[in-house]
Design a protein around this nucleic acid. Structure first.
Lengths: 138, 138
DNA sequence: GAGCAATTGTTTAATCGGAAACTATATATA
DNA sequence: TATATATAGTTTCCGATTAAACAATTGCTC
């Protein structure tokens, strides 16, 4: 069996696709991790740090510092869990919610453009495949 | 039209898939970017920094420092281009080649496992789709 | 061919990320 | 209930990444 070239490797293809898309969003003024954090909080407010780290595939110290910065910017806030005082529950602030709204628009517009170019049917299939791939790899 | 949830967003799905796979390779002792750099040099020795940065979706200052470290470790080396002395052509050393060989094995074994679990046919389709996606998004 | 713009890569300063150690709280065991 | 163990997050220290400025070389235009 012949050796695989770099772009027959899933790890390479995922790195490339992720970086290009992430860069383009950065250019649109959207920090991917910040946006993902706000988005997940808008969907499930009150998640503790550990769950958030899982949802976003960030490790905990990285998340702590990302949250520190976003608390500085008043985008999110911490609430200690009274039932288990080790836990910190995270919430989106009003400012965060309005920032999220504006960023949602940019992300959706950008992705719509990308998916149009790629072909909407194929884009949908790609997303479905990635979703099941992630379930399986975690 | 209802708003998309986080895991209907391509940018999120790509970030998740990339990070999980990249982490698993790190756990196997493979630094994804180092491996990709060595791999691309083994396929096209003599590429200048700019082309390498494109191939790997790294920005140039990041690549410069990655290369600095790998030169320290004697995995790669720089050769100034005599025809255009602004350019630096990169090559894989013997030590780099043997390190690449051992890491290739780990990457291939790990990806084989992942692709088996996911289903080899689907994995192949996923890769093909990612490849054309990348071509289109760049 | 002199002067100006474009290309290629590196350096600098500041921010960010990751592994390991640490703190605080909760749970299990004796 | 005292002690040990496990869990949740943060902090620390160091290495890595980024944007902006810089240096060197080449190409263009007059």
């Amino acid at each position: 069996m012949a050796e695989r070239s770099l772009n027959e490797h899933l790890s390479h293809l995922l790195a490339q696709a992720n970086r290009h898309l992430s860069r383009q969003l950065t250019a649109e003024g959207v920090s991917l991790d910040q946006w993902r954090l706000m988005k997940v909080l808008s969907e499930s407010g009150g998640l503790p740090m550990g769950k958030l780290a899982d949802e976003l595939a960030l490790n905990l110290p990285t998340l702590t510092k990302l949250v520190d910065r976003m608390v500085q910017d008043a985008l999110v806030y911490r609430v200690p869990d009274p039932a288990d005082r080790r836990k910190v529950r995270m919430f989106l602030s009003d400012k965060g919610a309005s920032m999220l709204a504006s960023q949602n628009k940019r992300v959706e517009e950008h992705e719509a453009k990308v998916e149009d170019n790629y072909g909407n049917e194929d884009a949908q299939r790609l997303k479905t495949m990635l979703e099941s791939f992630i379930k399986q790899i975690v």
